[in-house]
């Protein structure tokens, strides 16, 4: 996690990525020769492993849907119902990631800046959404937020139905996504020099100015990483959402459920068609976030 969270801190090591050719000419090269040996071996492992775990399964999706022809592909992947499902999936994942961005940041702040009894225990609790089987989470959340649940019964008189609609989906995704933000931001906050903040204060900055101009730019890349991870996870989440969503077509039906629906009809091609669209949108979003991240890092000179 640490390496994901603070790319800036370990950037020095990225300098090691050179072609073997340049490796041989190491002495003449401008940049100093890496002091860590074994680049060839580890890079080989990296490529083999990535291919086995990520690239081959993903390319199967492309191959499968490539065989079905554009018309059949569009009919499944861009039906009104599928488009409604994409909107719900990406919309709720975005909303959940935004909520998590705010509250996850506050939680990370509290855990790194203050000491209080039970802090370590609360800190460990953050990881539970990782460990819990998602179906268990879904059932528990539904039990709490349904109209006869612990919290749902107080929300209902206020006119808020918190389960079996997009709000319910968002709640499940907030639960699932929280650790990504907290765990991404925490190490950066720990590394942040308190002296810099004190210097800013002594130079007459208001506390909000310290946050906006000193702290926030420093944690921005990590926050974006966490945001991207939470978003990506939320888009693909099935197990917990399915129990709280209500699953009504056009209203609360998520795209992964449509994939399962296609499989239920033994329509493997249709399932991969929807998967491909989700993959493309997700990839574009992650790429965009990475670009923003690189830009913000460049701008703040971190």
């Amino acid at each position: 996690m640490a390496s994901l969270a603070a790319p800036a801190a370990i950037e020095g090591q990225y300098l090691d990525f050179r072609s073997p050719l340049r490796w041989r000419r190491g002495r003449k090269a401008k940049r100093p020769r890496s002091i860590i040996p074994g680049f060839g071996l580890t890079m080989g492992f990296t490529l083999a492993w990535l291919s086995l775990i990520v690239l081959i399964p993903l390319s199967l999706i492309f191959l499968r849907s490539a065989g079905m022809g554009w018309e059949a592909f569009a009919q499944v992947a861009f039906s009104p119902r599928a488009i409604a499902a994409y909107r719900i999936s990406f919309g709720t994942a975005l909303a959940a990631a935004l909520v998590n961005g705010v509250f996850g940041l506050i939680i990370a702040w509290v855990f790194t800046r203050y000491t209080f009894p039970g802090r370590r225990m609360f800190d460990a609790l953050i990881d539970l959404p990782f460990a819990l089987p998602t179906a268990v989470a879904g059932i528990a959340l539904t039990a709490i937020y349904a109209n006869n649940g612990w919290l749902g019964q107080y929300l209902e008189p206020l006119g808020i139905t918190a389960a079996y609609n997009p709000i319910g989906i968002t709640i499940a995704l907030i639960f699932i996504g929280l650790p990504f933000i907290v765990r991404s931001v925490e190490p950066v906050l720990i590394d942040l020099n308190v002296e810099v903040e004190e210097a800013a204060l002594s130079l007459g900055a208001q506390p909000w100015q310290v946050f906006a101009h000193v702290i926030f730019p420093a944690i921005m890349p990590a926050l974006l990483t966490g945001f991207a991870l939470a978003l990506a996870r939320g888009v693909g989440e099935y197990g917990s959402v399915i129990f709280i969503a209500g699953n009504m077509p056009f209203e609360s039906e998520i795209a992964p459920l449509l994939i399962v629906t296609q499989l239920e009809q033994y329509n493997y091609d249709g399932a991969t068609a929807i998967a491909l669209v989700m993959l493309a949108i997700s990839f574009a979003m992650l790429l965009f976030i990475n670009v923003v991240q690189a830009w913000s890092r460049h701008r703040t000179g971190a």
Binding site: A143, N147, N247, P249
Partner: peptide, 21 residues
Amino acid sequence: NVPVLDSGARGSTTTFSERGI
């Protein structure tokens, strides 16, 4: 008149009996 479409039969039974919907 259907407020919730669960994905399986047991899910619906739970919705009806436990959630009170």
